[in-house]
Design a protein around this nucleic acid. Structure first.
Lengths: 206, 206
DNA sequence: AAATTTACATACATCCTTGTATGTATGTCA
DNA sequence: TGACATACATACAAGGATGTATGTAAATTT
Protein backbone atom coordinates (compact mmCIF):
# COMPACT_ATOMS: atom_id res chain seq x y z
CA UNK A 1 0.00 0.00 0.00
CA UNK A 2 1.26 3.45 -0.72
CA UNK A 3 -0.74 6.60 -1.31
CA UNK A 4 -3.82 7.09 0.87
CA UNK A 5 -6.63 9.55 1.03
CA UNK A 6 -6.53 12.35 3.55
CA UNK A 7 -8.65 10.39 6.00
CA UNK A 8 -6.36 7.40 5.63
CA UNK A 9 -3.37 9.61 6.30
CA UNK A 10 -4.97 10.99 9.45
CA UNK A 11 -5.70 7.43 10.52
CA UNK A 12 -2.06 6.58 9.94
CA UNK A 13 -1.04 9.52 12.08
CA UNK A 14 -3.25 8.30 14.90
CA UNK A 15 -1.91 4.80 14.38
CA UNK A 16 1.58 6.15 14.93
CA UNK A 17 0.52 8.04 18.03
CA UNK A 18 -1.20 4.93 19.39
CA UNK A 19 1.92 2.91 18.73
CA UNK A 20 4.13 5.55 20.33
CA UNK A 21 1.95 5.62 23.42
CA UNK A 22 2.19 1.86 23.77
CA UNK A 23 5.90 1.61 23.13
CA UNK A 24 6.75 4.62 25.27
CA UNK A 25 4.73 3.30 28.19
CA UNK A 26 6.62 0.03 28.01
CA UNK A 27 10.13 0.94 26.98
CA UNK A 28 10.40 4.53 28.08
CA UNK A 29 10.59 7.62 25.91
CA UNK A 30 14.37 7.93 25.87
CA UNK A 31 14.98 4.28 25.15
CA UNK A 32 12.48 4.07 22.31
CA UNK A 33 13.67 4.72 18.78
CA UNK A 34 11.59 6.05 15.94
CA UNK A 35 12.01 2.68 14.29
CA UNK A 36 10.45 1.00 17.33
CA UNK A 37 7.42 3.24 16.97
CA UNK A 38 7.11 2.69 13.24
CA UNK A 39 7.50 -1.07 13.59
CA UNK A 40 4.89 -1.18 16.35
CA UNK A 41 2.51 0.58 13.97
CA UNK A 42 3.45 -1.76 11.10
CA UNK A 43 5.07 1.13 9.21
CA UNK A 44 8.54 2.53 8.62
CA UNK A 45 10.38 5.63 9.75
CA UNK A 46 9.35 7.26 6.51
CA UNK A 47 5.81 7.52 7.83
CA UNK A 48 7.03 8.94 11.13
CA UNK A 49 9.12 11.61 9.46
CA UNK A 50 6.27 12.46 7.14
CA UNK A 51 3.80 13.14 9.93
CA UNK A 52 6.22 14.53 12.54
CA UNK A 53 9.38 16.57 12.42
CA UNK A 54 11.16 14.39 14.93
CA UNK A 55 10.67 12.52 18.19
CA UNK A 56 10.12 15.66 20.22
CA UNK A 57 7.43 16.82 17.82
CA UNK A 58 5.73 13.45 18.05
CA UNK A 59 5.71 13.64 21.83
CA UNK A 60 4.14 17.08 21.71
CA UNK A 61 1.42 15.74 19.45
CA UNK A 62 0.90 12.79 21.76
CA UNK A 63 0.38 15.03 24.77
CA UNK A 64 -1.94 17.40 23.02
CA UNK A 65 -4.07 14.50 21.90
CA UNK A 66 -4.50 13.29 25.48
CA UNK A 67 -4.52 16.56 27.39
CA UNK A 68 -7.31 18.23 25.45
CA UNK A 69 -10.01 15.55 25.96
CA UNK A 70 -8.97 15.16 29.57
CA UNK A 71 -9.30 18.87 30.18
CA UNK A 72 -12.69 18.85 28.47
CA UNK A 73 -13.92 15.98 30.60
CA UNK A 74 -12.82 17.81 33.73
CA UNK A 75 -14.55 20.97 32.54
CA UNK A 76 -17.71 18.94 32.06
CA UNK A 77 -17.51 17.78 35.68
CA UNK A 78 -16.86 21.34 36.79
CA UNK A 79 -20.05 22.50 35.16
CA UNK A 80 -22.05 19.74 36.83
CA UNK A 81 -20.92 20.60 40.34
CA UNK A 82 -21.03 24.39 40.19
CA UNK A 83 -23.17 24.50 43.32
CA UNK A 84 -20.67 22.63 45.54
CA UNK A 85 -17.02 23.31 44.80
CA UNK A 86 -15.60 20.76 47.23
CA UNK A 87 -17.81 18.10 45.72
CA UNK A 88 -16.52 19.27 42.36
CA UNK A 89 -12.94 18.84 43.43
CA UNK A 90 -13.70 15.41 44.81
CA UNK A 91 -15.52 14.37 41.63
CA UNK A 92 -12.68 15.54 39.40
CA UNK A 93 -10.11 13.68 41.45
CA UNK A 94 -12.12 10.50 41.53
CA UNK A 95 -12.70 10.73 37.79
CA UNK A 96 -8.97 10.87 37.18
CA UNK A 97 -8.38 7.82 39.37
CA UNK A 98 -11.16 5.96 37.58
CA UNK A 99 -9.77 6.85 34.17
CA UNK A 100 -6.28 5.71 35.09
CA UNK A 101 -7.60 2.36 36.25
CA UNK A 102 -10.11 1.67 33.49
CA UNK A 103 -8.97 3.57 30.41
CA UNK A 104 -5.89 2.14 28.78
CA UNK A 105 -4.82 5.24 26.89
CA UNK A 106 -5.09 7.37 30.03
CA UNK A 107 -3.14 4.77 31.93
CA UNK A 108 -0.45 4.71 29.24
CA UNK A 109 -0.30 8.49 29.27
CA UNK A 110 0.11 8.71 33.04
CA UNK A 111 2.62 5.90 32.97
CA UNK A 112 4.71 7.76 30.42
CA UNK A 113 4.39 11.03 32.30
CA UNK A 114 5.18 9.65 35.74
CA UNK A 115 7.49 6.72 35.09
CA UNK A 116 8.70 6.55 31.54
CA UNK A 117 9.86 10.05 30.66
CA UNK A 118 12.99 11.94 31.52
CA UNK A 119 12.31 15.64 31.43
CA UNK A 120 15.51 16.76 29.82
CA UNK A 121 16.58 19.54 27.50
CA UNK A 122 15.76 17.51 24.40
CA UNK A 123 12.11 17.51 25.41
CA UNK A 124 12.07 21.11 26.57
CA UNK A 125 9.00 22.07 24.58
CA UNK A 126 7.10 19.03 25.77
CA UNK A 127 8.19 19.83 29.29
CA UNK A 128 6.99 23.41 29.00
CA UNK A 129 3.67 22.29 27.58
CA UNK A 130 3.24 19.85 30.43
CA UNK A 131 4.21 22.46 33.01
CA UNK A 132 1.68 24.87 31.54
CA UNK A 133 -1.02 22.19 31.76
CA UNK A 134 -0.01 21.52 35.34
CA UNK A 135 -0.14 25.20 36.26
CA UNK A 136 -3.56 25.50 34.72
CA UNK A 137 -4.74 22.48 36.65
CA UNK A 138 -3.33 23.89 39.89
CA UNK A 139 -4.90 27.25 39.12
CA UNK A 140 -8.31 25.67 38.71
CA UNK A 141 -7.97 23.69 41.92
CA UNK A 142 -6.79 26.81 43.75
CA UNK A 143 -9.83 28.70 42.47
CA UNK A 144 -12.03 25.92 43.71
CA UNK A 145 -10.42 25.98 47.15
CA UNK A 146 -10.64 29.77 47.28
CA UNK A 147 -14.31 29.57 46.48
CA UNK A 148 -14.80 26.91 49.13
CA UNK A 149 -13.18 29.26 51.63
CA UNK A 150 -15.42 32.19 50.75
CA UNK A 151 -18.43 29.90 50.95
CA UNK A 152 -17.35 28.77 54.39
CA UNK A 153 -16.73 25.16 53.37
CA UNK A 154 -13.10 25.54 54.37
CA UNK A 155 -11.56 27.70 57.12
CA UNK A 156 -9.88 30.87 55.92
CA UNK A 157 -6.58 29.65 57.34
CA UNK A 158 -6.30 27.33 54.34
CA UNK A 159 -3.89 28.53 51.66
CA UNK A 160 -5.71 27.78 48.40
CA UNK A 161 -2.60 27.58 46.22
CA UNK A 162 -0.71 25.28 48.55
CA UNK A 163 -3.76 23.11 49.09
CA UNK A 164 -4.16 22.80 45.33
CA UNK A 165 -0.54 21.83 44.77
CA UNK A 166 -0.74 19.25 47.53
CA UNK A 167 -3.90 17.73 46.12
CA UNK A 168 -2.32 17.35 42.70
CA UNK A 169 0.78 15.92 44.36
CA UNK A 170 -1.33 13.36 46.20
CA UNK A 171 -3.09 12.33 43.01
CA UNK A 172 0.11 12.06 41.01
CA UNK A 173 1.86 10.20 43.79
CA UNK A 174 -0.99 7.73 44.09
CA UNK A 175 -1.04 7.14 40.35
CA UNK A 176 2.72 6.79 40.25
CA UNK A 177 2.87 4.17 42.97
CA UNK A 178 -0.08 2.29 41.55
CA UNK A 179 1.45 2.23 38.10
CA UNK A 180 4.69 0.95 39.58
CA UNK A 181 2.78 -2.09 40.83
CA UNK A 182 -0.92 -2.12 40.01
CA UNK A 183 -1.68 -5.23 42.02
CA UNK A 184 -0.23 -3.71 45.17
CA UNK A 185 -3.44 -1.86 45.99
CA UNK A 186 -6.79 -0.67 44.68
CA UNK A 187 -6.16 2.81 43.33
CA UNK A 188 -9.77 3.95 43.36
CA UNK A 189 -10.40 2.67 46.86
CA UNK A 190 -7.15 3.72 48.53
CA UNK A 191 -7.01 6.94 46.55
CA UNK A 192 -10.59 7.78 47.45
CA UNK A 193 -9.91 7.28 51.14
CA UNK A 194 -6.74 9.37 50.98
CA UNK A 195 -8.58 12.09 49.11
CA UNK A 196 -11.32 12.18 51.76
CA UNK A 197 -8.79 12.24 54.57
CA UNK A 198 -6.87 15.11 53.02
CA UNK A 199 -9.91 17.23 52.15
CA UNK A 200 -11.61 16.58 55.47
CA UNK A 201 -8.33 17.38 57.20
CA UNK A 202 -8.21 20.69 55.39
CA UNK A 203 -11.68 21.48 56.72
CA UNK A 204 -10.56 21.19 60.34
CA UNK A 205 -10.29 24.71 61.88
CA UNK A 206 -6.75 25.59 62.99
CA UNK B 1 48.63 10.09 37.15
CA UNK B 2 47.93 6.43 36.87
CA UNK B 3 48.14 3.84 39.56
CA UNK B 4 46.59 4.79 42.92
CA UNK B 5 46.48 3.24 46.34
CA UNK B 6 43.41 1.38 47.44
CA UNK B 7 42.05 4.43 49.25
CA UNK B 8 42.63 6.54 46.16
CA UNK B 9 40.77 4.00 44.08
CA UNK B 10 37.82 4.09 46.45
CA UNK B 11 37.86 7.87 46.24
CA UNK B 12 37.82 7.59 42.47
CA UNK B 13 34.83 5.31 42.71
CA UNK B 14 32.99 7.84 44.83
CA UNK B 15 34.05 10.57 42.44
CA UNK B 16 32.40 8.66 39.65
CA UNK B 17 29.24 8.16 41.68
CA UNK B 18 29.18 11.85 42.55
CA UNK B 19 29.61 12.75 38.91
CA UNK B 20 26.93 10.28 37.85
CA UNK B 21 24.50 11.72 40.39
CA UNK B 22 25.08 15.21 39.06
CA UNK B 23 24.91 14.33 35.39
CA UNK B 24 21.92 12.03 35.81
CA UNK B 25 19.97 14.66 37.72
CA UNK B 26 20.57 17.13 34.93
CA UNK B 27 20.50 15.12 31.75
CA UNK B 28 18.47 12.08 32.75
CA UNK B 29 19.68 8.53 33.17
CA UNK B 30 18.81 7.31 29.71
CA UNK B 31 20.26 10.30 27.92
CA UNK B 32 23.54 10.23 29.82
CA UNK B 33 26.43 8.25 28.38
CA UNK B 34 29.21 6.63 30.32
CA UNK B 35 31.55 9.10 28.68
CA UNK B 36 29.50 11.97 30.08
CA UNK B 37 29.93 10.55 33.56
CA UNK B 38 33.66 9.95 33.17
CA UNK B 39 34.21 13.42 31.72
CA UNK B 40 32.24 15.02 34.56
CA UNK B 41 34.57 13.24 36.97
CA UNK B 42 37.65 14.23 34.96
CA UNK B 43 38.27 10.60 34.00
CA UNK B 44 37.67 8.28 31.07
CA UNK B 45 35.39 5.34 30.43
CA UNK B 46 38.26 3.11 31.40
CA UNK B 47 37.75 4.13 35.00
CA UNK B 48 34.02 3.57 34.79
CA UNK B 49 34.42 0.09 33.36
CA UNK B 50 37.03 -0.72 35.96
CA UNK B 51 34.79 0.12 38.91
CA UNK B 52 31.43 -0.93 37.44
CA UNK B 53 30.30 -3.61 35.05
CA UNK B 54 28.10 -1.24 33.09
CA UNK B 55 25.63 1.61 33.47
CA UNK B 56 23.05 -0.51 35.23
CA UNK B 57 25.62 -1.67 37.76
CA UNK B 58 26.65 1.93 38.37
CA UNK B 59 23.07 2.93 39.02
CA UNK B 60 22.65 0.11 41.51
CA UNK B 61 25.73 1.32 43.35
CA UNK B 62 24.43 4.86 43.29
CA UNK B 63 21.16 3.88 44.88
CA UNK B 64 22.71 1.73 47.54
CA UNK B 65 24.98 4.60 48.50
CA UNK B 66 22.01 6.90 49.05
CA UNK B 67 19.39 4.51 50.34
CA UNK B 68 21.40 3.09 53.22
CA UNK B 69 22.23 6.38 55.01
CA UNK B 70 18.68 7.58 54.42
CA UNK B 71 17.24 4.46 55.96
CA UNK B 72 19.59 4.80 58.91
CA UNK B 73 18.60 8.41 59.50
CA UNK B 74 14.95 7.42 59.44
CA UNK B 75 15.65 4.57 61.88
CA UNK B 76 17.31 7.10 64.17
CA UNK B 77 14.16 9.21 64.13
CA UNK B 78 12.06 6.13 64.75
CA UNK B 79 14.00 5.37 67.89
CA UNK B 80 13.58 8.91 69.17
CA UNK B 81 9.80 8.90 68.84
CA UNK B 82 9.02 5.41 70.09
CA UNK B 83 6.52 6.80 72.58
CA UNK B 84 4.35 8.56 69.97
CA UNK B 85 4.05 6.79 66.62
CA UNK B 86 2.10 9.50 64.86
CA UNK B 87 4.68 12.07 65.92
CA UNK B 88 7.29 9.63 64.60
CA UNK B 89 5.58 9.44 61.23
CA UNK B 90 5.30 13.22 61.12
CA UNK B 91 8.96 13.66 62.05
CA UNK B 92 10.14 11.19 59.43
CA UNK B 93 8.11 12.88 56.73
CA UNK B 94 9.29 16.34 57.68
CA UNK B 95 12.88 15.13 57.78
CA UNK B 96 12.59 13.88 54.20
CA UNK B 97 11.18 17.20 53.03
CA UNK B 98 13.95 19.08 54.83
CA UNK B 99 16.63 16.85 53.32
CA UNK B 100 15.29 17.30 49.82
CA UNK B 101 15.32 21.07 50.21
CA UNK B 102 18.64 21.49 51.97
CA UNK B 103 20.82 18.50 51.05
CA UNK B 104 22.03 18.55 47.49
CA UNK B 105 22.81 14.87 47.14
CA UNK B 106 19.39 13.94 48.49
CA UNK B 107 17.82 16.41 46.11
CA UNK B 108 19.76 14.96 43.20
CA UNK B 109 18.73 11.47 44.20
CA UNK B 110 15.05 12.33 44.41
CA UNK B 111 15.27 14.25 41.18
CA UNK B 112 16.72 11.24 39.41
CA UNK B 113 14.20 8.89 40.97
CA UNK B 114 11.13 11.02 40.28
CA UNK B 115 11.97 12.94 37.13
CA UNK B 116 15.08 11.70 35.43
CA UNK B 117 14.77 7.94 35.29
CA UNK B 118 12.78 5.67 33.02
CA UNK B 119 12.08 2.41 34.76
CA UNK B 120 12.60 0.10 31.84
CA UNK B 121 13.83 -3.41 31.35
CA UNK B 122 17.46 -2.29 31.10
CA UNK B 123 17.30 -1.07 34.69
CA UNK B 124 15.29 -4.02 35.95
CA UNK B 125 17.60 -4.76 38.86
CA UNK B 126 17.70 -1.13 39.92
CA UNK B 127 13.94 -1.04 39.63
CA UNK B 128 13.57 -4.12 41.79
CA UNK B 129 15.94 -2.71 44.40
CA UNK B 130 13.98 0.50 44.46
CA UNK B 131 10.67 -1.34 44.70
CA UNK B 132 12.02 -3.37 47.62
CA UNK B 133 13.09 -0.18 49.38
CA UNK B 134 9.67 1.28 48.74
CA UNK B 135 7.90 -1.78 50.09
CA UNK B 136 10.05 -1.68 53.21
CA UNK B 137 9.23 1.98 53.67
CA UNK B 138 5.53 1.32 53.21
CA UNK B 139 5.74 -1.60 55.60
CA UNK B 140 7.29 0.58 58.29
CA UNK B 141 4.69 3.29 57.81
CA UNK B 142 1.93 0.69 57.90
CA UNK B 143 3.31 -0.69 61.15
CA UNK B 144 3.32 2.80 62.57
CA UNK B 145 -0.27 3.39 61.54
CA UNK B 146 -1.30 0.01 62.91
CA UNK B 147 0.31 0.87 66.23
CA UNK B 148 -1.41 4.24 66.23
CA UNK B 149 -4.73 2.44 65.76
CA UNK B 150 -4.13 0.04 68.63
CA UNK B 151 -3.09 2.96 70.82
CA UNK B 152 -6.28 4.79 69.94
CA UNK B 153 -4.56 7.61 68.09
CA UNK B 154 -6.39 6.66 64.93
CA UNK B 155 -9.85 5.12 64.53
CA UNK B 156 -9.89 1.42 63.73
CA UNK B 157 -11.65 2.15 60.47
CA UNK B 158 -8.31 3.30 59.09
CA UNK B 159 -6.60 0.78 56.80
CA UNK B 160 -2.95 0.93 57.83
CA UNK B 161 -1.54 -0.32 54.54
CA UNK B 162 -3.56 2.03 52.38
CA UNK B 163 -2.86 4.96 54.68
CA UNK B 164 0.86 4.20 54.43
CA UNK B 165 0.83 4.01 50.65
CA UNK B 166 -1.07 7.27 50.44
CA UNK B 167 1.33 9.04 52.76
CA UNK B 168 4.29 7.94 50.69
CA UNK B 169 2.41 8.98 47.56
CA UNK B 170 1.79 12.41 49.03
CA UNK B 171 5.45 12.84 49.92
CA UNK B 172 6.68 11.67 46.53
CA UNK B 173 4.15 13.80 44.72
CA UNK B 174 5.13 16.88 46.70
CA UNK B 175 8.81 16.29 46.05
CA UNK B 176 8.17 15.64 42.38
CA UNK B 177 6.22 18.82 41.84
CA UNK B 178 8.66 20.87 43.85
CA UNK B 179 11.61 19.49 41.90
CA UNK B 180 9.81 20.30 38.66
CA UNK B 181 9.81 23.95 39.71
CA UNK B 182 11.42 24.66 43.09
CA UNK B 183 10.47 28.32 43.14
CA UNK B 184 6.79 27.51 42.66
CA UNK B 185 6.26 26.87 46.37
CA UNK B 186 7.94 26.22 49.71
CA UNK B 187 8.20 22.45 49.97
CA UNK B 188 8.69 22.32 53.73
CA UNK B 189 5.84 24.73 54.43
CA UNK B 190 3.30 23.45 51.91
CA UNK B 191 4.33 19.85 52.48
CA UNK B 192 4.04 20.25 56.23
CA UNK B 193 0.54 21.66 55.95
CA UNK B 194 -0.52 18.89 53.58
CA UNK B 195 0.95 16.28 55.88
CA UNK B 196 -0.96 17.69 58.84
CA UNK B 197 -4.18 17.88 56.88
CA UNK B 198 -3.85 14.27 55.73
CA UNK B 199 -2.91 12.83 59.11
CA UNK B 200 -5.51 14.85 60.99
CA UNK B 201 -8.04 13.83 58.36
CA UNK B 202 -7.20 10.18 59.00
CA UNK B 203 -7.89 10.73 62.70
CA UNK B 204 -11.49 11.82 62.07
CA UNK B 205 -13.85 8.98 63.08
CA UNK B 206 -15.91 7.66 60.18
C1' DA C 1 64.90 -6.04 42.64
C1' DA C 2 62.14 -8.59 39.70
C1' DA C 3 57.54 -10.12 38.97
C1' DT C 4 53.00 -9.36 39.27
C1' DT C 5 48.90 -6.88 40.00
C1' DT C 6 46.24 -2.65 40.12
C1' DA C 7 43.97 1.31 38.26
C1' DC C 8 43.21 3.35 35.02
C1' DA C 9 43.82 5.51 29.66
C1' DT C 10 43.69 4.60 24.84
C1' DA C 11 42.38 2.35 20.70
C1' DC C 12 39.31 -0.35 17.99
C1' DA C 13 35.31 -2.84 16.05
C1' DT C 14 30.47 -3.10 16.08
C1' DC C 15 26.16 -1.75 16.35
C1' DC C 16 22.49 1.37 16.35
C1' DT C 17 20.16 5.90 15.57
C1' DT C 18 19.25 9.85 13.33
C1' DG C 19 18.47 12.83 9.47
C1' DT C 20 18.02 13.23 4.78
C1' DA C 21 17.85 12.06 0.10
C1' DT C 22 15.63 9.53 -3.17
C1' DG C 23 12.21 6.35 -5.11
C1' DT C 24 7.40 5.26 -6.11
C1' DA C 25 2.73 4.36 -6.45
C1' DT C 26 -1.42 6.56 -6.00
C1' DG C 27 -4.88 10.42 -5.35
C1' DT C 28 -6.21 14.85 -7.14
C1' DC C 29 -6.85 18.47 -10.23
C1' DA C 30 -6.93 20.86 -14.64
C1' DT D 1 -5.34 12.19 -19.58
C1' DG D 2 -1.27 14.32 -18.24
C1' DA D 3 0.89 16.80 -14.44
C1' DC D 4 1.61 17.58 -9.95
C1' DA D 5 1.20 16.68 -5.08
C1' DT D 6 0.71 13.30 -1.42
C1' DA D 7 1.94 9.50 1.58
C1' DC D 8 4.71 6.81 2.46
C1' DA D 9 9.11 3.10 1.79
C1' DT D 10 13.89 2.53 0.91
C1' DA D 11 18.65 3.77 0.75
C1' DC D 12 22.56 6.23 2.36
C1' DA D 13 25.88 8.98 5.09
C1' DA D 14 27.49 10.46 9.52
C1' DG D 15 27.93 10.48 14.29
C1' DG D 16 27.72 8.28 18.61
C1' DA D 17 27.65 4.74 22.28
C1' DT D 18 28.96 0.40 23.88
C1' DG D 19 32.00 -3.30 25.01
C1' DT D 20 36.42 -5.09 24.75
C1' DA D 21 41.17 -5.41 23.86
C1' DT D 22 45.38 -3.51 24.68
C1' DG D 23 48.78 -0.30 26.68
C1' DT D 24 51.10 1.54 30.83
C1' DA D 25 52.92 3.40 34.95
C1' DA D 26 52.80 2.98 39.64
C1' DA D 27 51.87 0.08 43.75
C1' DT D 28 52.37 -4.26 45.86
C1' DT D 29 54.22 -8.70 46.48
C1' DT D 30 57.87 -12.04 46.68
Amino acid sequence: MVRKTKEDALATRNLLLDAASRVFSEGGVGHTTLNDIAAEAGLTRGAVYWHFQNKSDLINALWERVALPMQQALDQIRSEFAHDVLAMTRAKSRWVLRQVVHDESTRQFMSILLLRCEFVAELASARDYMLAQRDQCIGQLADEFALAITRGQLPDTVRAQGAAISLLALMDGLCMHWLLNPQAFDLEQVGGVALDAYLDGLAIPR
